[in-house]
Write a protein that binds this DNA or RNA. Structure first.
Lengths: 148, 148
DNA sequence: AGGGTGGGTTGTGTTTTCCAACTCAGTGGC
DNA sequence: GCCACTGAGTTGGAAAACACAACCCACCCT
């Protein structure tokens, strides 16, 4: 951190401290697809095995994933999302939507079917009024709200 | 990339290639707060100056931010979100909500006031039916949809 | 006995990132 | 004129993160 830094207090930054390193969100993506085993996660993400091992440890330490033994002798584990981890799927969905729109406008690599029968097309809305929400639409308040 | 890797085709991964490096999303956060100048972004994010310079170049090259000269002699620039960049604010909002819930349950560092008068509390919904959307609720289809 | 799978760890490089210090062209004070 | 300050970077050297093949161990199958 440079000496002249005075970082904004911010939940975005704090969340990224937990899941913002390379591969972490892709691990969560794999778990959300139902892929639970080390080797499969390596194959599907492209992360190297040592880094993946360390990411899994960190995510587990922070209560985002849970390790479950499915065999003793030899010890074998599967990884699952905790409820807190599952809430991060929102983030994936919004990232996916941006990439679908801006990087694959004609053929999204994956579609999720929503319970309404349509492919999911996620929007972020205000839970109070249902209107679209966007950072910057109005002014922020609170400890981290400085605008310069 | 390990030899046995066969990474999933995925818009999440492709989006993270553009904005997933450390500091990139915090740069976008600062621009969304109306902070536009190099030194202020350094101060508010805590990124080092060289890394910030390289992130700004990359984001500009990918059409997420735009550089605008506000002084000649000496040349001085401000940074702005492009429309594509502004759409990434959704991601920030969802990350912020997760951090507010799980890391600052009692006192969120920042609140955004929505046009309805309430503080914004973002939810991700399906644009077709308005119901809550979540990855994993139903099965994926498409080129990147394998579940093992 | 030989090969394959699962879940890692180790050793050894390569690449990023960090941070202070420096630059260069103005601006404001006195 | 002289000094300090600001803005927007760039540079050099050290530290941290990352990559990748190779190894390990214990089962399982044939």
């Amino acid at each position: 951190m440079p000496k002249d830094a005075d970082p904004r207090e911010c939940s975005v930054a704090d969340t990224l401290d937990l899941v913002g390193e390379r591969w972490s969100l892709l691990v969560i993506r794999e778990l959300s697809y139902g892929v639970r085993r080390f080797d499969r996660i390596v194959r599907n993400t492209g992360a190297s095995r040592d880094i993946l091992a360390s990411r899994l440890r960190k995510l587990e330490a922070n209560g985002i994933i849970r390790r479950e033994r499915y065999s003793d002798h030899p010890a074998r584990y599967e990884y699952h999302l905790t409820p807190a981890g599952a809430e991060l799927c929102d983030v994936l969905l919004v990232l996916m939507r941006w990439g679908d729109r801006h990087l694959h406008p004609d053929d999204p690599p994956v579609r999720w079917q929503h319970s309404c029968g349509e492919p999911v097309s996620p929007v972020v809305v205000c839970r109070h009024c249902g209107g679209e929400a966007r950072v910057g639409a109005h002014s922020p308040t609170g400890r981290g709200a400085r605008t310069s």
